[in-house]
Simulated assay, not measured.
Amino acid sequence: MPRRAVPRTRPRRTALLPPETVAAIRNELADVADDVVKQIIKEVPPYAAAFGGTMGETIRTAVQVALGGFLSLVSESGPNALAPRASAVDGAYQLGRGEARSGRSTDALLSAYRIGARVSWQHLSAAAVAEGIEPATMASFAEMVFAYIDELSAASVAGHRDEAATSGRVRQRMLERLARHLLTGAPEATVTAAAERAEWPAPTTLTAVIVPESQVGPLLHTLQRDTLQVADLPELDASTLLLVPDAHGRRRATLLRAVRDRGCLVGPARPWLEVRASYERALRARSLDLTGDTEAHLPRLVLTADPSALEDLRSSVLAPLGDLKPSSAAKLRETLRAWLLHQGRRDEVAAALFVHPQTVRYRMNQLRELFGERLEDPDTVLALTIALGVEEESPE
Rank of each mutant, 00 (worst) to 15 (best):
A108N: 14
S75K: 01
H221V: 04
Q172A: 14
A48K: 15
A66I: 05
A23M: 02
A253R: 09
G249R: 15
R250D: 10
L206Y: 10
V36L: 14
L175S: 11
V275T: 15
N365D: 10
T294Q: 11
I40C: 12
D150C: 07
E274W: 02
A30P: 03
T380E: 13
P187R: 12
S327N: 10
R10K: 10
K42C: 07
R10W: 04
Y279L: 10
S156A: 15
I59L: 15
T21F: 05
P218D: 05
R85V: 06
R337I: 03
Y93F: 04
V74P: 11
Q39G: 09
A194E: 07
E99N: 14
H221T: 09
L152V: 07
C264Q: 14
L375H: 00
A136W: 01
R368P: 06
G389K: 12
D261I: 02
D35M: 07
A352E: 09
V129N: 10
H356F: 03
A5C: 05
R345P: 11
R270C: 09
E295L: 11
G78V: 03
H248S: 15
H160S: 02
V266C: 14
A186Y: 00
E163K: 08
L29M: 13
V244A: 13
R346E: 13
T385H: 13
F354L: 13
E176G: 12
V317A: 07
V360F: 10
D377C: 13
A238F: 08
N27L: 13
P135L: 15
L73D: 08
W339S: 01
R3Y: 00
P19M: 11
V191D: 05
L341D: 12
L236F: 03
S278M: 02
L67G: 04
A48H: 10
A202S: 08
R173S: 14
L242K: 13
Y113A: 14
L288D: 00
R8L: 03
A387W: 03
S214P: 07
A158T: 11
Q215Y: 01
A305D: 06
K38Y: 07
R284M: 01
A351W: 05
D35C: 08
R10I: 00
C264V: 07
I386G: 10
A231V: 11
L301F: 00
P18N: 14
V170W: 11
V145Y: 04
H342V: 01
E392F: 08
T385G: 15
G263F: 05
G68W: 03
F371N: 06
V36I: 13
A186G: 02
R363K: 06
A330T: 02
T254V: 05
L223Q: 06
R270L: 08
T294Y: 07
V230M: 07
P245T: 05
P234L: 02
E20Y: 07
P320E: 04
L290E: 01
A189M: 07
R60T: 04
P234H: 00
R60A: 08
A202G: 02
R281G: 03
R104V: 06
G78M: 04
F146Y: 11
T385K: 12
S308P: 01
P201H: 03
T294H: 10
P218L: 04
A350H: 08
G56K: 09
L124I: 01
E199K: 12
P357S: 00
V6F: 01
L124H: 06
A338E: 15
